[in-house]
């Protein structure tokens, strides 16, 4: 019962975001905080093969580009730069909805090597939605200049996802980034993100809610993450779920929140 929601596949949802829907043209999302050199990474990967427009229905700039790696074409979608995905602004909603509903084949999270602590906040949130994550530790040249040593091996172990250090301005590390991303897309690497553990009260509530989410929505969208958002009363996600999973059976949502 209740499995009607699963009928909407990720490819159909991608159409709603105006990105390629063909199964043999992988879509990669580029997430990151503002000022991390995310657009430098984007420009370095796609060059002049870019297209800008608006996110459907939003006055938020959407930049898409393509790149070819080992004969395979990929579409790269530059998400708005945000500190978080907790949907406090339109930018955050756009970024969250894309990762959540268009289900990119991989999401590269660009972080600033000189400001890792703040930036990992976003990476941890992305990892809660999707396992297909690659961490791009950008501005590594800047970090070296400041005598900061970043142990990418330790990061890989702590996060459970591939980590690549880059300096996009000088194209350092970009081949490795493409390599890791392609492996994640084609399931040659299966990231196992180590998720954030919450306080016992929250974890207890999640364990009660998660089976119910799974029963209703299936595994299509990470049930643990949806449970957390429901607990924290994120009404924008509920509206997005309504939109992408049909209006039926969800009549009472607004009444509940009224």
């Amino acid at each position: 019962m209740g499995l009607t929601y699963q009928s909407t596949g990720k490819l159909a949802n991608r159409e709603a975001f105006d990105v390629p829907v063909s199964a043999n043209e992988p879509v990669i999302a580029l997430a990151g905080n503002p000022n991390t050199g995310k657009s430098t990474v984007f420009n370095a990967l796609t060059g002049l093969r870019q297209h800008t427009g608006n996110w459907p229905g939003k006055t938020v700039l959407q930049t898409k580009g393509i790149f070819i790696h080992e004969g395979q074409q990929y579409t790269l979608v530059d998400l708005p730069g945000t500190y978080s995905l907790l949907a406090n602004s339109v930018d955050e909603q756009v970024a969250r909805d894309f990762i959540c509903f268009a289900k990119p084949d991989a999401t590269i999270v660009v972080v600033d090597a000189t400001c890792l602590e703040r930036n990992l906040n976003l990476a941890l949130q992305v990892m809660e939605i999707t396992e297909q994550v690659v961490l791009c530790v950008n501005l590594i040249d800047e970090a070296r200049r400041r005598k900061l040593n970043i142990d990418t091996g330790a990061l890989t172990r702590a996060l459970g996802i591939p980590v690549v250090a880059t300096a996009a301005r000088s194209k350092e590390g970009l081949p490795q980034l493409l390599e890791s991303t392609a492996k994640v897309v084609w399931k040659k690497i299966k990231p196992r993100p180590n998720l954030v553990q919450y306080i016992p009260e929250v974890e207890a509530a999640v364990s009660l809610l998660e089976p119910k989410v799974k029963a209703l929505l299936g595994n299509d969208i990470n049930p643990r993450w949806i449970s957390l958002r429901l607990l924290d009363g994120d009404i924008t996600l509920i509206k997005a779920l309504e939109k992408f999973y049909g209006q039926q059976k969800v009549k009472s949502v607004r009444e509940v929140f009224a």
């Binding site: 009260e201 059976k249 969800v250 009549k251 009472s252």
Partner: peptide, 24 residues
């Protein structure tokens, strides 16, 4: 088992209860 999103939301509200700020 919940049969609608609405019920799911109700359930979440019940679990988080008055502590929503604290949870967040």
């Amino acid at each position: 088992l919940p049969s609608s999103l609405g019920q799911l939301v109700e359930e979440a509200q019940r679990l988080s209860g008055p502590l929503q700020n604290t949870i967040r």
